[in-house]
Structures are given as structure tokens and as C-alpha cells.
């Protein structure tokens, strides 16, 4: 009689405890590097004390499936690390990334990655910014997209659109379509400073029409590039 009751209780307990586990995990293993509560850095000096990108709006930014996968097998998102200033040095032809200085990210097993992803998806202080973006479904050719992205808007200067093509001071964008929510992409392109007041991504005053094209282009890119 005692055994079945114990089994029932422990199953019930583990399900109920899942969300709380995720929060506890974030606190104990992630908070030392990541800001989980906000606010974003208000000065350059403050930003430069950050050890890792802010995660306090993770639920407004990431796709859950990407988080679950990435937390088990983290790959580099920022080719020059975070912050790039801590990982660059002068080189022969230009400044170069000091690859040896780039740390590897801690990895989690499936259960813990799932718990952490669920806890991160609950962090949504910017629902209002996301709700402002109205995106109709559609596609855009790679050639048209690149025209808007590079020639008209100058985004290639800071972002990779292939593992070896583009700039490196911003996150790579060849897998942004699988990493990020479409509305987040639209919103950060429209007003990067609404997310991070002191970010080194400039507000380039991109028109509504071009924002839609960029979102579709990044979706096309991530479907072509299977670097997840």
C-alpha cells in the first residue's frame, strides 16, 4: 500500500516542481554571468561590467525550441564574444578576434535544459513592444533580401550572414530565424535602444516595408543554412 502512494506522490511532485526547478537553476548556475531581473545597463561603463548578454527579456526574444537545443549544445552566437571589446587585439591588416580568449558556454542535460528554457520563456517584461509588431507571413528571395540588408541598410558591417561572411561585432544572423521570434527581430531592428539603451547596434531608421523584408530574409537564410 505504501509503495504506490509514494510513486504517485513523487511523479506529481516532479511535475509540479519543474518550473520552480528551472528558476532555481537559473539563479544558481546562470545569474553569476547573466542579468535575469533587469534593468538593462544605463551607461557604457555599466554595460562593460556585464559578463554575458542580458536574459531578463528572454521570453520576448527567443524561440523555446532553440533554447532547449542550444542549452544542451551551445555554439557561438557572437563571433567576437561578449563584450567584443574584451576579445579583440590589433592584427597585421586589421584588429582581430583573440579566439583563444573566447570561453565555451556551460552545457545542460536535456531535463535541465528544458527546465531552464521554460523558466526563461516566462521572462517577458516587454510584451508591449512585441505586440506592436504586426507581421504578415511571406517570403523573400535571398538576393532581394541581401540588397535591403547590405546595400540599402548597411547591416552586413556588423553581422555574419554566412559563417564566414559579414561583420563580427554583432550576433551572427544566419541562424537568427530559428533562434529569435519574428516580432523580436522586427522590434530590435526598429528600435534597438528600446531593448538595450546603450547597445552598439545603431537605430538606422529602417522603414516598415524594409523591416518586413529583413524579417523574411532572415527566415530564408536560416532555412538555407542548417547551422543550428
Amino acid at each position: 500500500m505504501r509503495l504506490p502512494l509514494w510513486c504517485f506522490l513523487s511523479v506529481f511532485y516532479s511535475v509540479a516542481a519543474h518550473a520552480a526547478d528551472g528558476d532555481a537553476l537559473l539563479q544558481s548556475e546562470c545569474a553569476a554571468c547573466h542579468n535575469l531581473t533587469g534593468p538593462a545597463a544605463a551607461t557604457v561603463a555599466e554595460l562593460r561590467t556585464r559578463k554575458a548578454p542580458d536574459l531578463f527579456y528572454a521570453g520576448n526574444k527567443f524561440r523555446r525550441e532553440w533554447l532547449v537545443r542550444w542549452l544542451q549544445q551551445p555554439t557561438r552566437v557572437r563571433p567576437a564574444g561578449f563584450l567584443f571589446l574584451n576579445h579583440i587585439k590589433p592584427g597585421a591588416k586589421s584588429d582581430v578576434v583573440d579566439a583563444a580568449s573566447l570561453p565555451t558556454h556551460p552545457a545542460l542535460d536535456t531535463a535541465r535544459a528544458t527546465a531552464a528554457a521554460d523558466a526563461l520563456m516566462n521572462l517577458r517584461p516587454h510584451d508591449a513592444l512585441i505586440a506592436k509588431e504586426k507581421l504578415a507571413a511571406g517570403t523573400l528571395s535571398r538576393a532581394m533580401g541581401e540588397m535591403v540588408f547590405d546595400k540599402f541598410s548597411g547591416c552586413l558591417a556588423c553581422h555574419l550572414i554566412e559563417p564566414e561572411y559579414g561583420g563580427v561585432s554583432g550576433p551572427e544572423l544566419y541562424s537568427a530565424g530559428t533562434r529569435l521570434q519574428a516580432e523580436y527581430i522586427a522590434s530590435i531592428v526598429r528600435t534597438p535602444q528600446a531593448w538595450q539603451p546603450k547597445t552598439w547596434m545603431p537605430d538606422k531608421h529602417i522603414s516598415d516595408a524594409n523591416i518586413v523584408k529583413i524579417v523574411r530574409y532572415l527566415d530564408t537564410l536560416s532555412k538555407e543554412n542548417k547551422h543550428e
Binding site: I88, L156, Y165, G167, S169
Partner: peptide, 25 residues
């Protein structure tokens, strides 16, 4: 501070136009 965070990525640590981003610009 501002030059380091906002300009060095393209204009370089030495300000000589040789930042980490220039290869494909």
C-alpha cells in the same frame, strides 16, 4: 568610453579605420 564601444568595432582600436568588422565591408 563612447569611442571604444561604438566606433572601435569599425574604426579600430587605434582609430586607423582597421576595426574587426572591415573584412567584408
Amino acid at each position: 568610453d563612447n569611442y571604444a564601444l561604438y566606433c572601435v568595432q569599425c574604426h579600430g582600436l587605434r582609430g586607423d579605420g582597421k576595426g574587426i568588422n572591415i573584412r567584408d565591408m
